[in-house]
């Protein structure tokens, strides 16, 4: 069950998006996220949604994978949607005591749901098409200016690499420990939420202990391989911008311009 999580998973491929520079992908993703929120009416939101869908298609990854990552946050989508339905102004459609459904609320809900879905989709594109080490490498490069403020950029990137590497290892271990405790008669599936959380303690403690043991081993293995922080370190794969990144940037800039124009000429819904 814990292994179904697709968020943050890398799916190797050879598409246009796969071949883009990781730094460009991060920057453009951030811009897309901003503009998904800038889009204030249905026309501009539709534009952003179409562009996002286009990007998703360009990754040539099965749509099923995107749906899987959506499943994880299905609850969030439904919940925020429902909340928004009740918090709107405008023409009242239905009223019962203090609960009121308005046209504004319904519009809000639709907007928020589309925004969250597009957001998750484009974020998944980044993690699906970028290898974890490219991603951390790109973050390290993008954060480099922060070094002036004594932020330990390389160390942060290294921690991310290691965290990503050990997620599957620890998930597998959790499964193993759970089974081991079940074999000893531990009951983890019944009872209220408090009882279930309490039942997790015998899983978390061994997991914690073994993580420390792993950390110790890993530190030793890294030392054996002459790890000495970021100074004087080279990389096997050097990131470099190509025509693809330029093309993507130009295309997105045009879209953003379109969104702004739409925002000016079409009246905002909210």
């Amino acid at each position: 069950m814990v292994r179904d999580i697709t968020l943050g998973q890398f799916l190797p491929g050879h598409s246009f998006i796969h071949k883009m520079d990781a730094r460009a992908k991060i920057l453009l993703l951030m811009a897309i996220v901003v503009f998904i929120f800038v889009a204030g009416n249905y026309v501009s939101l539709l534009m952003m949604t179409i562009v996002s869908l286009l990007i998703v298609l360009m990754t040539r990854i099965k749509f099923r994978m995107y749906l899987k990552s959506m499943k994880v946050i299905l609850f969030v989508i439904i919940f925020t949607g429902l909340i928004n339905v009740f918090y709107g102004s405008g023409e009242v459609l239905w009223e019962w005591q203090f609960i009121r459904i308005t046209w504004g609320g319904i519009h809000n809900a639709i907007f928020v749901i589309i925004r969250i879905i597009t957001l998750v989709m484009v974020s998944s594109v980044l993690t699906f098409t970028t290898s974890p080490s490219d991603l951390t490498d790109a973050i390290e490069r993008l954060l480099k200016p922060l070094k002036i403020f004594h932020v330990k950029v390389h160390e942060i990137a290294m921690m991310m690499t290691i965290a990503l590497r050990f997620i599957p290892v620890l998930l597998e271990e959790t499964d193993k420990i759970m089974n081991a405790q079940k074999a000893r008669g531990a009951d983890m599936e019944s009872g209220g939420i408090i009882r279930r959380v309490k039942a997790l303690m015998p899983v978390l403690i061994p997991l914690f202990v073994s993580s420390f043991r792993r950390a110790n081993d890993l530190a030793m293995a890294m030392e054996c391989r002459c790890y000495n922080g970021g100074n004087g370190r080279t990389r096997m794969k050097v990131l470099h911008f190509s025509w693809r990144d330029l093309a993507a940037a130009i295309f997105l800039l045009l879209t953003f311009a379109g969104v702004i124009v739409c925002n000016i000429f079409v009246p905002a819904v909210m």
Partner: peptide, 13 residues
């Protein structure tokens, strides 16, 4: 333990 000495998420890296 082979698991504890592999640093990166891709073999060649």
């Amino acid at each position: 333990n082979p698991d504890n000495q592999i640093v990166a998420g891709i073999v060649e890296e």
